[in-house]
Design a protein around this nucleic acid. Sequence first.
DNA 1: TCCAGACCCTTGGATGTCCTAGTATATTGC
DNA 2: GCAATATACTAGGACATCCAAGGGTCTGGA
Lengths: 168, 168
Amino acid sequence: MATPLPRDPIADARRNWEDSGWSTEAGPMAAITAIMRTQQILLARVEGILKPLGLTFARYELLALLSFTRNGKLPMNKASALLQVHPTSVTNAVDRLEKAGLVVRAPHPTDGRTTLIELTAEGRTVAKNATAALNSEVFSQSGFSSEDVDHMIRILADFRRHAGDFSG
Amino acid sequence: MATPLPRDPIADARRNWEDSGWSTEAGPMAAITAIMRTQQILLARVEGILKPLGLTFARYELLALLSFTRNGKLPMNKASALLQVHPTSVTNAVDRLEKAGLVVRAPHPTDGRTTLIELTAEGRTVAKNATAALNSEVFSQSGFSSEDVDHMIRILADFRRHAGDFSG
DNA sequence: TCCAGACCCTTGGATGTCCTAGTATATTGC
DNA sequence: GCAATATACTAGGACATCCAAGGGTCTGGA
């Protein structure tokens, strides 16, 4: 990470692919590899901002989701569906957030199987601060031009819809 | 994954951002969140293909990198730099690949600090099979149009260069 | 020549993700 | 009404990633 490489390793990989007879697949391979790498860079930035606040990206996402609900409550399974992560990942995040006093678990009033996650007052404050920090430190200077942002949102939304994330 | 959501959760998040006074940051937030989710979807596909071959994406990347070198050897630190992951991640991957007989560790001829990773004959075969599987099962039907692939490669390369990945 | 600082790899610890069960509660269908 | 099926959450395990530390090896300047 310290020193930039002299050449783009993904462009090199693409050339290797083409030289090996996979010309058709070289482009998608390069695009997918670039997405993987970009995600890694962005995640590192986000976690760097959240760490001083005692949060990780996974926990922040849950906190932010709760803060945008009307009453700060959400069933675990709903959170799992909206965040599109495995239920055990939500259990893990809630365990840690609860230990930090940012959320509490509460029984569902009518369904005994369901557990509600409730934002605490402190959790709401931390969520607000974290959002402000991410907006000013990451999102407002993402490194993407405005046109590129729009373009990516469109491309990736098409992809996600096609992958079955949502039907809208 | 089972059932698609009725609406795009990222588009909803974007609306929440705008309603909270973060209009400027809403776009980049949505784009970045979409990249995170897309990476997750793609990684799951890739791992699903590699699993029957006894590989994970991390191990495959190392195997593929080695298979494209002239003699199938690479110093650990070089692999770490090219794959752009932490040195300990390479140690971890090599440990498992070595246990599986796909690579071996060898001392560097002139620098006593350095360890070389060497592809075994079996490792080369597995790498070839894995690449063929990924090309036919993932890259050849990525879900991105040809234009979108080109566009993303350009956008993400700009981003990665700007982030310090490479200087070329 | 020789030692301090730089570099390389590994170990140990914290997190997160997924999968596979296992337990408890709801729902459905006969 | 009761058994079979479906749903919700959690425990345990496998992997991967990063960071912090530690021990071995080089190298350059005094």
